[in-house]
């Protein structure tokens, strides 16, 4: 595994250094604050975001390969979670949301083997859960994302958009289940998984699932697998853009949603550069 990719961190960020299994509470007074998560030599973290707080958590550095973390959002709390994967990782991640809390995750995997299990529990009314992911598989990397999003209480919304691009011999898989419990009425849950296969030796597997026990809900999911849009490519070429650049632009556009969640210019620009360097 070559890790020729890395992100240079903005020194101004408040850092949460996790050196052994620990618990931390994040709170803020006034404006939103950003925290950087640095893990080394530890295996688990339990993080609570306090009532009404509005924070950002950034994970963008080498992490221990086997990590398990739990995040609790108290009522009215808001968490924007940006995770950039550049190394092999195996993580188990659990989210508990109390009422009126908001969670937004941007998951960008650009290198390494990944095996992630995300379990999200919406345990209060009025929660909003958003997950946007972009995975660009190259070499012989294997990425498997398993998501289990549980709606336990009514009047909540969730949205998942995972986009995969599989090249070389990579094997990418998506297994996402939305579970709406009995009495969790008036839920709106959407999930989409869009996949592009570039090489003949790449493989994509997609299992979007719905388990619905409440009736007054609106839930849907969609999954597509295909190639880069030939019409779009031709259109760009007819405007003088080379085929290679056009492909690059389309692949890059797949990362739009997760990238738009990243407000930190210094981070977003570096990611865009890495993606550009991966395009061949």
């Amino acid at each position: 595994m070559q890790n020729s990719k890395y992100i240079k961190i903005n020194e101004d960020l408040t850092t949460i250094k996790v050196e052994h299994d620990s618990r931390t509470t994040l709170r803020n007074t006034g404006q939103a604050e950003s925290y950087l998560l640095l893990c080394s030599g530890s295996h688990s973290l339990c993080l609570t975001v306090e009532k009404g707080a509005d924070v950002t958590l950034i994970e963008a550095s080498d992490a221990t390969p086997d990590f398990c973390y739990e995040i609790h959002l108290e009522s009215g709390a808001s968490l924007r979670h940006v995770r950039i994967d550049l190394t092999d990782k195996k993580t188990r991640y659990t989210l508990h949301q109390e009422k009126d809390s908001r969670y937004e995750m941007s998951l960008i995997s650009l290198c390494g083997n990944q095996e992630n299990l995300f379990t999200m529990h919406s345990e209060g009314e009025g929660t909003d859960t958003r997950m946007c992911g972009f995975t660009y598989g190259q070499a012989a990397y294997k990425v498997k994302n398993t998501i289990r999003l549980h709606h336990h209480k009514p009047h909540a919304t969730s949205y998942q958009a995972f986009k995969y691009v599989a090249d070389d011999k990579s094997r990418l898989s998506f297994d996402g289940k939305i579970i709406v419990e009995l009495n969790a009425q008036k839920i709106e849950a959407y999930q989409k998984n869009n996949n592009i296969l570039i090489s003949e030796e790449a493989h994509i597997a997609s299992d979007p699932q719905l388990e619905i026990y409440a009736d007054d809900v609106r839930c849907s999911h969609g999954s597509t697998i295909g190639q880069l849009d030939a019409d779009a490519l031709f259109y760009m070429q007819s405007r003088g853009i080379s085929y290679k650049s056009a492909c690059g632009m389309l692949i890059r556009s797949f990362a739009d949603e997760p990238l738009s969640i990243i407000k930190e210019d210094w981070l977003r620009e570096q990611i865009e550069d890495i993606i550009a360097s991966m395009l061949k």
């Binding site: 996949n195 719905l210 619905i212 999911h221």
Partner: peptide
């Protein structure tokens, strides 16, 4: 699942 780049799959479900 797909092992073929030129194959197209479109799936949609609503409840």
């Amino acid at each position: 699942s797909s092992d073929c780049p030129t194959a197209i799959v479109e799936h949609e479900a609503t409840t």
